[in-house]
C-alpha cells in the first residue's frame, strides 16, 4: 500500500470526508509532510474505490459546489488495520535493532590509544 493510500484510508477512519477534507486531514495526520495534489488524491481514491476499500457516502451542495463524501468500507478498515500492524511490526524491529546497537556500540578506536 502506498503512503498516500495509507493516509487517505486513515483520514476516513473516524468519519466520512469530502475530497478537500481528506487533503486537510492527511496534512494533519502527517504533520504537514504529505500534501496531496488533486490528481494524486483522485488517482488514489479511484484505486481504493475500485478495490472496494472506500465508497461514496453522500453528496451535498455547499455554496453552489458539489461535495461528495467518501467513507471507509469494512474491507478498507481491515486492510488499513493489517497495513498498520505490518508497519508497526517493522518499526518495532528497527527500533529494537537500533537500541541494541546503541548499547553495544563502542568508540571506533577505543583501546588502541595509548
Amino acid at each position: 500500500m502506498t503512503e498516500p493510500a495509507f493516509f487517505v484510508l486513515t483520514a476516513l477512519v473516524d468519519e466520512p470526508r469530502h475530497g478537500y477534507g481528506i487533503v486537510g486531514e492527511v496534512v494533519a495526520l502527517s504533520d504537514g509532510r504529505v500534501r496531496l495534489k488533486i490528481g494524486t488524491l483522485y488517482g488514489v481514491l479511484d484505486r481504493l474505490a475500485g478495490d472496494g476499500l472506500v465508497q461514496r457516502d453522500r453528496d451535498e451542495v455547499q455554496q453552489g459546489r458539489l461535495r461528495r463524501y467518501y467513507r471507509l468500507t469494512e474491507t478498507g478498515r481491515r486492510s488499513l488495520n493489517a497495513e498498520a500492524e505490518r508497519q508497526a511490526a517493522n518499526a518495532r524491529a528497527a527500533s529494537a535493532r537500533l537500541s541494541a546497537s546503541t548499547l553495544t556500540r563502542r568508540p571506533a578506536r577505543q583501546g588502541w590509544v595509548s
Binding site: 475530497g19 478537500y20 488533486i38 488524491l41 481514491l45 459546489r65 461528495r68
Partner: peptide, 17 residues
C-alpha cells in the same frame, strides 16, 4: 470516461483548496 465520474468532485476540491 474518467472525467464523467470524477470531474465535478475534482473541480470542487480544487476550488476549495
Amino acid at each position: 470516461s474518467y472525467r464523467a465520474v470524477w470531474e465535478e468532485d475534482m473541480v470542487a476540491t480544487f476550488l476549495s483548496s
